[in-house]
């Protein structure tokens, strides 16, 4: 019997060595260690065995059983690993093939630019105030300290409507008067985005319609230094922490003192390039302290209140940031343009 066991043991191990795939391995297991396998058949004979040799045989049988099981486990692991390796080896992809395209949408570049300004000024307590595109001459000009035939009106060629004294706003400053009149006597801190219109030739640099964002802060103690600080903060967040600003005296009828703000050119880091015309500076916005007449027209006593205002063009910002060379793209809405942003 013991011989039979030893033969089974060596033959089974020899057979196991020949097994080269998991399917054959399962057959080997079935034949050897399975419920009706060779080892089981020997086990069944233990009861009829001479009691004298039974313990030794039993002990050896258990050893053989566990050795075979271990050999099987090892073989199974090896074969599985080999098979997985083979599967993987045969299933390589050309990872440079393009992915499945998704139909994607997006926001207009100007919406994205406006949101940037909303967020930055929002953090400084400025809230968005919107006013109509079609407004009165009074709100757009007179109350902003542009008397009739004033030279400053020539800077902005207006579109007039068939209704007397009703025009398409030439700037969002028209909303300054509305905001002040609505909020008096509270302090004011608003930004005014919107579409503006000027009767200009449509070229790569000018359009009959353009967006603008203005800002207005009115309170008891608002100074030119606050204006500089606020706008410099904006410039750093909008155009990068390294940006420096420069304020130049300028003229707007509704502010006094007035200033243009330039930032150091972010395209060439002020080394000089075509965009900054080799000056190292980019003109970004116009600003100033709210003119006393404008404060008064908004309901605020200029002896008690001061304020600042500023205005900028999102198209110009986007043109600078992305190197867009034709302002007509913004309202042309060619999807080949819009989907780049």
């Amino acid at each position: 019997m013991l011989d039979e066991l030893e033969t089974l043991y060596t033959e089974s191990l020899a057979k196991l060595d020949q097994v080269d795939n998991t399917a054959v391995l399962e057959t080997w297991y079935h034949d050897t260690l399975g419920r009706k396998g060779a080892v089981y058949l020997l086990t069944r004979q233990v009861g009829q065995m001479d009691p004298a040799i039974r313990p030794a045989f039993g002990k050896r049988l258990n050893e053989v059983k566990s050795d075979l099981q271990a050999a099987y486990d090892g073989r199974l692991a090896t074969l599985k690993a080999a098979e997985l390796e083979a599967t993987i080896a045969g299933s390589a992809l050309d990872v440079t093939l393009p992915g499945r395209p998704l139909p994607t949408g997006g926001l207009h570049i100007i919406t994205q630019t406006l949101r940037d300004t909303y967020r930055i000024f929002g953090d400084m307590g400025f809230q968005v105030y919107r006013s109509p595109d079609v407004d009165t001459d009074a709100n757009n000009f007179e109350l902003l300290n542009f008397p009739p035939h004033h030279p400053a009106r020539e800077m902005q060629d207006s579109f007039y409507t068939t209704k007397p004294d009703v025009i398409l706003r030439t700037h969002t400053s028209a909303g300054q008067i509305r905001a002040m009149q609505e909020y008096y006597p509270e302090p004011v801190r608003v930004i005014l985005p919107g579409m503006c219109y000027r009767n200009e030739q449509i070229t790569t640099r000018s359009s009959i319609q353009f967006t603008q964002v203005e800002g207005l802060a009115v309170g008891h103690n608002i100074s030119m230094a606050d204006l500089k600080g606020t706008l410099t903060e904006f410039a750093r967040r909008m155009f990068g922490a390294n940006r420096q600003t420069r304020f130049r005296a300028s003229y707007f009828p509704f502010t006094e003192p007035s200033a243009e703000m330039d930032i150091t050119c972010f395209l060439c880091e002020s080394k000089g390039c075509q965009v900054c015309k080799y000056t190292g500076w980019l003109e970004i916005l116009g600003s100033g302290m709210v003119h006393p007449n404008v404060l008064r027209n908004g309901g605020y006593d200029p002896d008690v209140y001061t304020g600042f205002a500023f205005g900028m063009g999102p198209e110009r910002i986007a043109m600078l940031k992305y190197g867009i060379d034709d302002i007509r793209q913004f309202w042309g809405n060619d999807l080949r343009f819009l989907q780049q942003f």
Binding site: G125, I222, D226, G229, T230, E233
Partner: peptide, 8 residues
């Protein structure tokens, strides 16, 4: 002119 943050 210094740059200051709105304190109003």
């Amino acid at each position: 002119i210094p740059n200051t943050i709105l304190s109003d």
